[in-house]
Computed example of a mutant assay.
Amino acid sequence: MMLLTVSENELILTPGNEAIFPHQTWEDYERLLDFRQDKTLPKLYFNSKTQQVRLMSPLPSHGNRVSTLSDLVKILLRRQGKDWQCFDPITLKIPNQAGLEPDTCFYIENRQAILGKDKIDLTIDPPPDLAIEVDFTSITDVEAYELLKLPELWVYRQESLNIYILQENSYQDSEKSNLFPNINIKKILPHYVELGWTEGSSIALRQFETLDNFS
């Protein structure tokens, strides 16, 4: 049974549930952020086109896959000799347009622009180069990410990884990642994400680190 509590003192949604509020404004979204105070859950999303505020509270299986997927990306970045800045949790907002809280995100090419900042303001700062969402409790609102003009979005769902590349302000489903064009991301990563859940994250990551061929 879903349990949602909204008051001036707390905002609580039981794990494994999603709540959608229709006909919402930016002010409604900001009010819910205030109710949540300094907590990170439930995650809050706002899309001005749909006028919906979505709340999501994940299960442990969700968090485990997010953590493993994030660690796999870090291994790939190290292999390429690239630096990064990873954020989780983070709230990404453009006032009156969209507010999002990806499961994890990476600044790579734009890393220097946000180093040392306590808050990222997307009206002046660049968006992350990569955002990752794992869909268990809810379905990612891809259109909302378009409003933030985030270059690349990965959505992991049912042992499958979808890659979305921003082209002319809309996402195109892609077989390859612009960040890792020579690696078969869609084939390789889901195997190790699920291995991390069934056998343990450390085992999955050790095996992944020993790979010589990422095709």
Rank of each mutant, 00 (worst) to 15 (best):
S215T: 06
S174N: 12
I120R: 03
F21N: 06
L59T: 07
F87A: 13
L72M: 05
I12P: 05
F106H: 07
T40L: 11
T137D: 14
D34S: 14
V134C: 00
T198P: 07
L211S: 08
D212S: 11
I139R: 10
W84T: 03
L211I: 06
L72K: 00
D103F: 01
L161H: 06
L69R: 00
T137S: 07
D125S: 15
Y45P: 00
A113F: 10
K149R: 13
T50E: 09
E143S: 15
N169A: 13
P127Q: 10
Y29K: 02
F136P: 14
L147D: 12
V134K: 01
T40M: 11
N184L: 02
L44F: 03
L150M: 15
D103S: 01
C105I: 03
I114C: 09
L148E: 10
D135Y: 15
P60Y: 10
R78E: 12
D83F: 13
Q97W: 15
M56W: 02
A204I: 00
Y171V: 12
T137C: 14
Q97H: 14
F87S: 01
N9P: 04
Y145R: 08
K43W: 14
D83N: 12
K49F: 08
L44E: 00
F35L: 09
Q51T: 03
L161K: 05
L150G: 14
A144P: 01
V155K: 07
L4F: 14
S201A: 11
E133D: 10
E209T: 06
I90Q: 06
S160T: 09
S202M: 09
D38T: 08
S57T: 10
Q24I: 08
S201E: 05
S215Y: 00
E8A: 11
F87I: 04
F136R: 11
L33S: 07
S174L: 07
H23C: 05
S177P: 08
L211T: 08
T198N: 04
V134Y: 06
E199N: 05
W154C: 05
V6D: 03
